[in-house]
């Protein structure tokens, strides 16, 4: 019966634990109209609605789907920021993540420092997959995932619109300027999400209640031994130049006439 013994071993090896780490960021809600402070020092965030960055929400959803498919066994979410970002961790827990970690700091960190802190979390947690948003809609940096991959030596699949995990590898289809590209990465790996990867679910009320009891560890950023000094200083933040409101034309003939003779663009 050697054959069936082998079969059992195969089955067991499939059931190894696969942990997914999802870093989530608290960011301005995407519906909010952004205002710059009158002193041009920053964007005014007082009393503005904050949410989980949309790309991070997609990352959480993807992790939950991988768990539902039986590919992943545990989902850990981590957010770096002050106590307020626990709200976004709870949101992720309500969507289906298992436990949360808040890395507490008041500092304004750049992507590099965020990536270095996440590197430490990766060393502690040893996830098979780290799924991040491709960018956050406040700084629009689009850096953290790539930096984390470089620092940890994990391969990267950015701007993902499809993710398939199979046998120690992950195939990632990426949205690139010319179309789509698929790469194959050996796990553990870093994936960053694009918009069309999935459509996140809404958290149900029972799941929101359940999320309140899921474990959430708080750690101090200072304890990680990472140099948190930013290399970038913001000189000023100004509103963008406003476009002058234009005119309404009555019909196609007037439009074509204006484009030819006034704007001279056709």
């Amino acid at each position: 019966m050697i054959v069936s013994r082998y079969y059992i071993v195969k089955r067991l090896s499939i059931e190894v634990k696969m942990k997914i780490l999802v870093p989530v960021k608290r960011a301005i809600d995407y519906n909010v109209k952004v205002r710059v402070k009158p002193d041009n020092s920053a964007v005014d965030l007082t009393n503005t609605k904050m949410s989980i960055n949309p790309f991070c929400e997609i990352a959480v959803e993807e992790a939950v789907r991988l768990k539902e498919k039986g590919v992943a066994t545990e989902i850990v979410v981590v957010s770096i920021g002050d106590k307020a970002c626990q709200e976004q961790i709870r949101t992720a827990l309500a969507l289906g993540a298992d436990r949360g970690i808040q890395i507490d700091t008041d500092a304004q960190l750049d992507s590099l420092q965020i990536a270095k802190l996440l590197q430490k979390v990766v060393e502690e947690e040893s996830p098979e997959l780290v799924i991040l948003g491709k960018q956050s809609i406040d700084s629009d940096n689009n850096q953290t995932g790539q930096m984390l991959a470089a620092l940890t030596g994990m391969p990267q699949g950015t701007f993902a619109s499809e993710v398939n995990v199979d046998d120690g590898k992950v195939n990632v289809t990426r949205e690139i300027d010319g179309g789509l590209q698929t790469v194959q990465l050996t796990l553990p790996a870093v994936v960053t999400t694009d918009l069309r990867l999935n459509e996140p679910r809404y958290a149900s009320l029972p799941n929101i209640m359940k999320a309140k009891r899921k474990p959430l560890d708080v750690k101090s950023a200072a304890d990680f031994g990472v140099d948190l000094t930013s290399h970038v200083s913001v000189i000023k933040v100004t509103p963008p130049p406003q476009r002058e409101g234009g005119i309404k034309v009555a019909d196609v003939a007037e439009l074509v006439e204006k484009l030819k003779n006034e704007a001279k663009v056709i």
Partner: peptide
């Protein structure tokens, strides 16, 4: 966007996007 943040991280510098 794909490769430059890696360069920055490995040089231990910030990237300006």
């Amino acid at each position: 966007k794909n490769f430059m943040p890696r360069v920055a991280a490995l040089l231990d510098v910030a990237q300006i996007s």
